[in-house]
Amino acid sequence: MHREHFVDVAPGVRLWAEERGDADAPALLLIMGGQASGLGWPDELVDALAAHHRVIRYDHRDTGRSTWSYETEPYAITDLADDALAVLDGLGVERAHVVGMSLGGMLTQLLLADHPERLRTATLIGTCALSTTPYTRPDGSVTPVEELPPIDPRILDMWAHRPEDLDPEAELDWRVAHWRLLNGDGIPFDEEAVRELERRIVAHTGHARVSTAHGRADHSGMLRTEALAATGVPTLVVSATAEPVFPPPHAQHLAQVIRGAELVEVPGMGHALPRPVLEPLAKAILAHTGTA
């Protein structure tokens, strides 16, 4: 059963949210990446999780059906973590399992560090550590955080040269090309499925415009080195072997800096959620939430 809501998270700011699954089941909050609607979580994955959880996904500010407010009321990335808590508050959820991808993984780390009492478990996908602790390789050598592998330069080039004022079809073409790179080289790219999902997101949003708010928002004050090293929240880190945004060993580093974190590998996965990764990903998340 689908239940849609609008949740007031700040003066003049409302976020669209959707619930699936038994309302009495343990809540599981999905936090998507930057500039991404909650519909970026594929229905197939949401439904698999909803067989055991009250699954909540939502649109960040300046995405989907939520308030687009950055141009008149700029905010910081840390405010987006507060939004996640406000969604839980608005839906009457005291504690939740939280799954975050990309920027959503960073927001989940902020929740881990600042509001551990609100999390049953955390799962982090396609993200980097909010920590200055260096990475210790299996051979004992140490790599400073700033020397971990960078984003694929082809993706950086796309971000730096994004055309403006594209017509709707050209906008879809750009998004598909972008997802082709994010998909990585480990799994065949399903252009038709990606284009259809983006059409759904455009219909959900009501227009094909894209905000750059999350890239321009204040990113300061996000390091949580000591708090992550001391957390008691059970945490799962997903290692995507073909990840182009935070390539290996970013996931391995993330699992090192969070106290007690476990690491699970999804072979062939990149910085996207194509159908072949959904079953192993759902199994890993459910196995993790089932231990709490």
Rank of each mutant, 00 (worst) to 15 (best):
A177E: 15
E265G: 00
A48Q: 15
L172S: 07
L30T: 03
G92F: 06
A170S: 15
L166E: 07
R195S: 01
I187S: 01
V13Y: 02
L182G: 00
G186T: 13
V142L: 02
M1S: 15
V202E: 03
H288S: 12
T143C: 11
A177T: 08
R3V: 05
A84W: 00
P267Y: 11
E169H: 06
L39T: 07
P244M: 13
E243G: 00
A227W: 00
E147G: 05
R57F: 08
P163A: 02
R224G: 08
L112F: 01
A240Q: 11
R120D: 10
V264W: 00
P188Y: 10
V245T: 15
M269F: 05
P134L: 13
E147V: 05
P267R: 14
H60T: 12
E196M: 12
G268W: 09
R162C: 04
A10C: 06
A48I: 07
H53P: 05
A51R: 15
T289N: 09
G221I: 11
W16M: 05
D173W: 08
D185A: 14
P153G: 10
R137C: 10
P26F: 10
T133R: 13
R57H: 15
Q109C: 01
T212K: 04
T235A: 03
V176K: 04
H115S: 15
E265M: 04
G104V: 11
L15W: 05
A122V: 08
